[in-house]
Simulated scan of single mutants.
Amino acid sequence: MGGTGVLAGTGTAHARAHTRAASAAPAAAPVRVMPLGDSITDGLNVPGGYRIDLWQKLVADGHEIDFVGSMANGPGSLGDRDHEGHSGWTIAQIDASTDGWLQAYDPGTILLHIGTNDMYRQDPGGAPGRLSALIDRITGRLPEVELFVATIIPLPFADANVRAYNAAIPGIVRSKAEAGRHVHLVEMYSALTAADLADGVHPNATGYGKMAAVWYDALLSVPGSLGLTPEGGGRPAG
């Protein structure tokens, strides 16, 4: 009994000391995450799109996340409605505006799904080069940003173009990573099928849920993207 009492008392003292230390430490700032892309990021057909389920998964895990961007939409179940998804926009259009967004919102993590509108407009074959230039612009302005680059989801009426574009993305991402940038490939195309599309272009609720799951797994695979070190500790904001 005596030994148990000593251990219990020691544990209580340690707990109090830990509580004091924790209360003295500054709270980590939420990680600024920018969902970046076109109407699929915006959530056409299902306002909020993949961001709804992704937000809920991250919050349920206790992650402090601040979605950022100049746009906002989504239901009440989406606790943070900000994003940078622009309906109808191509890679070049996103590229032309990116500097201003990055300066305004200074994201620590970016979720990039872009290229769908390039697949049925002029020069789909040049889309990989435009994507490479966009990645360079983002990582040039924010060298420490964790940039997740997704292959685009199926677009049945332009499938050959989509497949050719997606096939080029792993090599682009690899070259940026080898150059020291924090660029990560996210395989999104294989996660959805035509049955997950509401209108042949944009996902239905099930499809957006599948996208959220892929983004979530990708974020967890790179601890720094959620403000954590690989050991689970906090990473300074900035």
Rank of each mutant, 00 (worst) to 15 (best):
G126R: 05
V173D: 00
A213V: 14
P107R: 04
W101D: 10
A25E: 13
L54Q: 02
G62R: 02
T41Q: 06
L185K: 03
A104G: 11
G129W: 04
I52L: 06
A194Q: 15
P35C: 02
W101S: 13
A194V: 15
W215Y: 05
A28G: 06
L192I: 10
R181Q: 14
P47N: 07
G232A: 09
G69V: 03
S39I: 10
T109A: 00
A133R: 13
A13H: 12
V214W: 09
N117F: 12
L134C: 07
H184S: 00
Q103K: 15
M34D: 00
E144M: 11
R130V: 09
T193Q: 11
H14W: 12
T229A: 11
L112K: 04
L155I: 10
I153P: 05
E187Q: 12
A92P: 09
D196Y: 10
S221L: 06
V186D: 05
V6K: 15
G2R: 12
Y208C: 05
G79V: 05
R32W: 02
P156Y: 08
L111D: 04
N45F: 07
F148S: 07
V6D: 15
A24K: 13
S70F: 13
L142V: 09
L78Y: 03
R163S: 07
I52M: 00
H184I: 01
G37C: 03
S221Y: 00
S97T: 15
A29C: 08
I114C: 07
A191L: 12
A198S: 10
I169G: 01
A212L: 06
A213I: 10
T229Q: 11
F67C: 02
G227P: 02
D53A: 11
F148P: 00
A133L: 09
S77Q: 08
